[in-house]
Nucleic acid binder design. Structure first.
Lengths: 119, 119
DNA sequence: CCATCAATTCAACGTTTGTTGAAGCGTATG
DNA sequence: CATACGCTTCAACAAACGTTGAATTGATGG
């Protein structure tokens, strides 16, 4: 990920309604949510939501697929990963302890190795 | 971290000059950089930089200390960690594999356990 | 084929944001 | 105590952003 993409992603997340959309989609998981459902959940007019969804999609933070009359949006987990990596890249020039808290914070969420506690 | 703080942080990062400042400070490490040095590195007028530094400080992404005539800024690693945690919170509702890539991306940067490779 | 529903595009608007130059404040030095 | 230096505050302006209602596209059902 280059600076241009990261910039677009952070700018996209720096807006109340868009941040809520991404959070809702992250929580919803790979199944995603229809645009209408999102509009209700976030509390924004559909016209306005479309604008924000396009922005998020352009920033690589969400993806979408048509399903009948609805358009289903989901979080782009890869895009989110890349964004985190960009922000912390080159963070520990010989000082691993500096950015270790960030790893711990994220690990607490994901428990990727099936090893849930006392890591 | 609550939504309001996360919003301020993402909005702060969604601006070219501010993102460069944060990246420069993340790379610089705990020692930090003086405002003047940052202005040179980022390529922005000192007046303008002050504005952005205040914004970043307010968002909890950087800290500062006075040292003689200079003001030294450094990355607030804890703030960055919290931000990452907020973004990915509740991401793996029974599906750890979904956000595992994010953990991998960050771990590659930090190698916190002294275990550098082949993890 | 027409009516309906879901979602998007478009143009217009009010507000917020980033930038600039001049002036001010705090710290060091002769 | 006066000067120089580093940085910040202030007021003003142009550009970008988010919101809204009306019109449009695409898919489904009578």
């Amino acid at each position: 990920m280059d600076e241009r993409q990261a910039l677009a992603a952070f700018a996209a997340l720096g807006q109340e309604h868009r941040l809520r959309v991404v959070r809702a989609l992250v929580i919803a998981g790979p199944d995603g949510l229809a645009a209408g459902a999102l509009a209700t959940e976030v509390g924004v007019a559909s016209t306005n939501l479309s604008f924000h969804l396009k922005e998020l999609s352009h920033a690589g933070l969400i993806t979408f697929r048509r399903e009948g009359k609805s358009v289903i949006y989901s979080a782009a987990y890869a895009g989110l990963s890349d964004l985190i990596a960009f922000l912390m890249r080159d963070c520990c020039q010989g000082r691993p302890e500096v950015c270790a808290p960030a790893v711990a914070a994220l690990s607490a969420c994901a428990c990727p190795n099936g090893d849930t506690a006392h890591a």
